[in-house]
């Protein structure tokens, strides 16, 4: 995702919004404006379509209010979030630990890397039926899927981060008398943190997708499950409600990932060749 554009630093070939005349055309104003236009067009044309095939903003809003009042939507959000947090926390812990170990110990890399690669290239959602056989239709199956798909990007970024570290800063620590352990804890881990955070950000997106697919597949609870339910009952306005909630959730989690990245690697933009 691109960084928020600064009106004074438009890309070459782009005209700065300020250059387009009125100073009121800030990026925020443009974003809000285009969103309003989109929603109005959607409302206008959406009303002309068969409500089984499509819906429009006011109908979705009404459906959203109903689903909230009945408690169905809050319940689904809570279930989804609980599973997500549990699965993703597991993914982060296992991914970072495995990544640090495989990045650091050559022998482990030789022993494990190809196996993990094979897992990674397997479309993991294809394992969902198997996972349901193991764990049943309840939360453990979903937590496992969220864990599985989110773990890999975290693992890969961490391991590659450790391996791409130059000797430079490790040597500094060594010259100040750091033991192997201290070199690892005081240099390797913090120096890898930016890569870990990139993995976390990528993992968030994949875990969210994994969560929805697992919920749709098991169709017992969560936002994915109510999406399937209202699709089957041809209540398209209600179908849109969880979809939009998922969009908002995705945006919020992505922002969280980006801010984690910035927070833990403020030096990254100016770092040297170390």
């Amino acid at each position: 995702m691109a960084k928020a554009a600064d009106p004074r630093t438009a890309l070459p070939g782009q005209r700065s919004p300020l250059a387009m005349g009125a100073g009121i055309l800030s990026p925020t104003a443009l974003r809000v404006g285009s969103t309003v236009v989109l929603v109005v067009l959607w409302e206008f044309f959406g009303r002309r379509v068969n409500p089984i095939l499509f819906s429009y903003p006011t109908a979705i809003l009404r459906a959203g209010v109903d689903l909230t009042a009945s408690g169905e939507l809050p319940r689904a959000i809570l279930t989804s979030l609980q599973n997500f947090v549990a699965g993703f926390a597991l993914a982060a812990v296992v991914g970072v630990t495995l990544g640090l170990l495989v990045g650091r110990f050559r022998l482990l890399e030789y022993a494990l890397r190809h196996i993990l690669d094979a897992f990674y290239v397997t479309p993991q959602v294809a394992l969902i039926p198997l996972v349901i056989l193991w764990f049943g239709l309840g939360p453990p199956a979903k937590i496992f899927i969220i864990f599985l798909v989110g773990m890999f990007p975290i693992f890969y970024n961490t391991a590659d981060g450790v391996r791409s570290l130059g000797r430079g800063l490790v040597e500094v620590a060594e010259a100040y008398g750091a033991s192997e352990r201290q070199q690892f804890r005081e240099v390797t881990v913090p120096a890898t943190l930016p890569h870990i955070m990139t993995g976390v950000r990528l993992g968030i997106g994949r875990s969210l997708t994994g969560m929805v697919v697992a919920e749709m597949f098991t169709a017992t609870s969560g936002l994915g499950a109510i999406t399937v339910f209202y699709a089957n009952t041809l209540d398209t306005a209600r179908l849109f409600v969880p979809v939009i909630v998922l969009t908002l959730l995705g945006v919020a989690l992505l922002q969280l990932g980006l801010s984690l990245e910035r927070r833990f690697a403020p030096w990254k933009e100016t770092e040297r060749a170390w």
Partner: peptide, 27 residues
């Protein structure tokens, strides 16, 4: 190393994730 002899590096070798205070206190 770090006690009897200390090396000052050409490219500074400061740890970018540590403040000046923590860099100096590293040893």
């Amino acid at each position: 190393p770090g006690v009897d002899v200390c090396l000052v590096f050409q490219h500074y070798g400061l740890f970018p994730w540590l403040s000046v205070l923590d860099n100096v206190a590293f040893g």
